[in-house]
Amino acid sequence: MSKQPVRLGMLGAQHGHAAGKLRWLRDLDEIDLAGVYEPCADARAAKESEPNSAGLPYVDDIDRLLEDPSVLGILIGGAERQNPSYARRALQAGKHLLMEKACGWTHAHADELTGLAESSGLLFQMGYNNRLTPHFRRVLDMVDEGEFGDIYRVRSHMCSFYHPSADTYLGRDRYFNGGIFYNLGSHALDMAMAVLGTPAKVHSFLRCDRFIESGYIDNATVVLEHPNAIATLEASHLETEQVRPRSFEVYGSEAQAIVSPWASIGDRAPAVAIHRGGPGAGADGWKVYGTGREAPFRDDVEHFVACIRGECQPRFSYAHDRAVHHTLMDICGETDVAEEVA
């Protein structure tokens, strides 16, 4: 017997990940898309020009989604200064939430939003879209099963190619600190903390090496210090190509894993190389696992639907998402920029 589709809506469509999410809201049989609220006509027109987000049912009144009891969950995908306000309204309306990263630009944003969801018994899922892809799930499953033994090091290299539009985040439009680490390094932080938990100390090296006049942080290395492990997270806006160099590595006493690349590039598909058997296994201990499919943003949308249906529990807890955001704020620093109110 086929299952009834889950009715969802989306607030905002200006986030960089929005088109990827909208594709699956529109195309997956298990979803009934009630509508997308995006008040900016230019943003709607831009989405209509993209194959992944064309043909969407837009609504002019946000309350058509928030006051509809048949809408069980809301995805938040607006411009990031709008998203805390969108998320707050959706949670206050009793909707499960899948929120695009980041959770905001203050410590208080994470406490308020995760606390509101938790106290109301609502799902709160952050849109760090790598956390549920097959290659990262394999690594996290190994962590859960203790297959790495004692983990003593995590390393991530997740950078972006140089382009002058990084200055978009400066001046009057700048609402966050930390530059490229806030914008991109947060993905790596999420995964590192999924492996090692909350660090005891954070050491941040946030540099401006090319955008000298603007002051945009374009070259960053963050060291997370744990009682028996170290994580080093590299993020820059200076590389000539951004996909092939990305890697995420976990080193333990019994096994190690290297995710690289994170997405397809040229003749290389995303994969994870895993070494088992300890030092005695030598080179024969390596095995490479492919992903089987590559469908960006599909995994977290499908997981959200499955959690709403009660078919599984969220892979990441309220406490994890709170801790990641607090650590991100410890690294980058807060700002006092006002939200754009929905």
Rank of each mutant, 00 (worst) to 15 (best):
G121D: 08
L122F: 14
L123S: 01
Q125R: 11
G127L: 03
G127Q: 01
Y128R: 01
Y128S: 00
N129I: 09
N129A: 14
N129H: 15
N129M: 14
N130F: 15
R131W: 06
R131G: 01
T133P: 05
P134M: 13
P134D: 12
H135Q: 15
R137V: 12
R137Y: 06
R138T: 06
R138F: 06
R138Y: 05
V139T: 09
V139H: 07
V139Y: 06
L140A: 00
D141H: 09
D141R: 09
D141L: 04
M142Q: 09
V143A: 00
V143L: 01
G146M: 03
G146R: 04
E147K: 11
E147A: 10
F148W: 05
G149F: 03
I151G: 01
I151E: 02
Y152M: 02
Y152D: 08
R155W: 10
S156V: 11
H157K: 07
H157E: 07
H157P: 00
H157M: 04
M158T: 14
M158I: 15
M158A: 13
M158L: 15
C159D: 08
S160A: 13
S160T: 13
F161W: 12
H163E: 14
P164M: 08
S165T: 14
A166Q: 12
D167M: 10
Y169W: 15
Y169T: 07
Y169R: 11
Y169N: 09
L170K: 06
L170T: 09
G171Y: 07
D173R: 12
D173Q: 08
R174Y: 04
Y175S: 06
N177W: 06
G178I: 02
G179M: 07
I180F: 05
F181V: 10
N183Y: 11
N183R: 14
L184H: 13
S186R: 08
H187P: 05
L189C: 06
D190K: 01
M191F: 15
